[in-house]
Design a protein around this nucleic acid. Structure first.
Lengths: 307, 307
DNA sequence: GCGATTTATGCGGCTGGCGCAACAGGCATG
DNA sequence: CATGCCTGTTGCGCCAGCCGCATAAATCGC
């Protein structure tokens, strides 16, 4: 007999969040997946826990009785697992993550929040750094894992891809290209452009990629930090080409992003860790959360683009 | 976070049974599988629960503390799941199984014992019958599921193979063929043979198979029931050809089984159920247990043959 | 030492679960 | 009453993880 704890979590999450979709997001899966988990549990139990139409749902008689029990069960298991983890390595319960700044400012907060919620007793060390510094930090073991831009140049590093981050055209809402569905690189020849300078990690990668397109872009402005670029755009000094991940939704209400195609140029964001040592439990937990947060973000941004 | 209840079961089972292999058997998996489950759990927890050499093991400090907790957890989950199942259908908590007698006398007890242990509140109806009666019982819904010999002749029946049961030569320990590793059909021409009569399910099937071999076997004795055949063999009246499954280990200490080859003739045992209705929860539980018991028996008999 | 016994591991196959996308049923708004 | 939107369901294809098998490795008894 295999007990479907995932199903239990689904059941409890639906009730606690009040909706399938919200519960799914909280569990880092799609709504479809959650629907199936719950169904499986119900099949296994031979019982309907939640009576649902396509639009509303309510607990069944049995479900109502089972809910507190399920909650209790889950929290028991949770506690048991965590206590075992904690008792064993109070000393190792510190984990470091190095992260390129573009991600650091955007997704890292979410990661941290989930991590501290799930491992309340562990301490988290954060390194916000440029791409090559991230690799250094991981290799020298100052950080357990890192989030950086591929290609990761060094041996001794294991990398797992997290996200393809396309470069997009960033412009203010009064820019002539703002309402296009997509812009081709060739259309940018006579634009006033703000680019990242060669010094930065993404800048270097970007330059190489553009060189292959046989296009010379006007380098009207060149900045070291993406946020400066956003500042310039906001002042109406031109359009910038930046990785999509940089854009904080709502930070600059007047700023728009337009996909750049022909071809799409992306940078690859990846999770890296040393090859030679196995990760500590704390680090593995963190890595899992990183992957989940990125997966969820990928999904949600894909959805956002569609609407 | 997905909780590894299978790992918990593995851990507890090892301690309770005192050995990996025994625990594995009890959980209906191989020793290798169990070893991996435990390892996975330990990795997930970041803790060694059982310190082991290849030959001995003992609980680690942490494992010792965790054991009662794990047991408690499992029994809680168990109870919760079962109570929900039970509350929902006190009326349906009765399940019938029809079974050919060769299996009934041998494996059915094991199945029943596991079932009542796992579903203590459910009642079990047993039909011990000949092959065609089993099919009848299932079709007429007198039984929820059946165990019979293929080919199952009828439509409206869904069959899942359980076991290839080879015919073997059964002889007493003073028989001249007793110590051969295997016996070819041709060698039996001048033996005194005890066969099942055409009337029985396996007998019919057996006759057809033998006819295809272009061999005429001496029908010295012909009996209706396998146990009678065993009795005759035990009296030294000849050798019998019977499905392997018939042999109760240790029932007749002087009786040996020798594989019959050139070619191997098998009968196929299968689990059947009606095609048109979905099984009740109770019936599905029983079906699962049937499959597990057969799988375990297949493995153990294969091992036994190897040694 | 050497065989027997018990756990660990590399490998291949398969199943279950997931995401995706299309669908279906309700509810709101006009 | 029609139309569109919102939410849960379902078919499909894919992939990771798990299992069994075979074999290795390690230890104990003799």
């Amino acid at each position: 007999m295999k007990f479907d704890t995932a199903g239990l979590q689904a059941f409890v999450a639906v009730v606690e969040h009040g909706s399938f979709s919200k519960a799914a997001t909280a569990l880092f899966i799609t709504q479809a997946g959650l629907s199936r988990r719950l169904k499986n549990l119900e099949t296994q139990l031979g019982v309907v826990l939640i009576e649902r139409t396509t639009r509303t749902w309510r607990l069944s008689q049995v479900g109502h009785g089972f809910l507190p029990r399920a909650q209790r069960l889950l929290s028991d298991i949770n506690n048991a697992f965590h206590e075992v983890r904690d008792t064993s390595r109070l000393d190792q319960a510190e984990v470091g993550i190095a992260c390129v700044s573009s991600v650091a400012s955007h997704l890292l907060p979410r990661i941290v929040s989930h991590y501290t919620q799930r491992f309340p007793r562990n301490r988290l060390r954060l390194f916000d750094a440029a791409a090559h510094e991230v690799t250094d930090a991981v290799l020298s073991k100052r950080a357990d894992i890192g989030i950086t831009v591929l290609p990761a140049p060094l041996r001794g590093i294991e990398a797992a891809p997290l996200l393809h981050d396309p470069f997009v055209l960033v412009c203010r809402d009064d820019h002539k290209l703002k309402s296009k569905k997509e812009v081709r690189w060739r259309e940018l020849r006579n634009e006033s452009l703000i680019l990242l300078s060669h010094g930065t990690g993404s800048g270097l990668y970007f330059d190489r990629a553009v060189a292959e397109l046989n296009i010379v872009l006007p380098r009207t402005y060149e900045v070291l930090h993406p946020t400066s670029a956003l500042g310039l755009v906001n002042e109406g000094l031109g359009a910038a080409i930046l990785p999509n991940l940089i854009l904080f939704r709502d930070a600059y209400p007047r700023i728009r992003a337009v996909p750049l195609v022909g071809p799409v140029v992306r940078r690859q964001i990846a999770l890296i860790h040393p090859q030679d040592v196995t990760l500590t439990v704390a680090a593995r937990g963190l890595a899992t959360i990183v992957k989940e947060v990125f997966a969820a973000w990928t999904r949600s941004s894909r959805q956002a683009r569609r609407h």
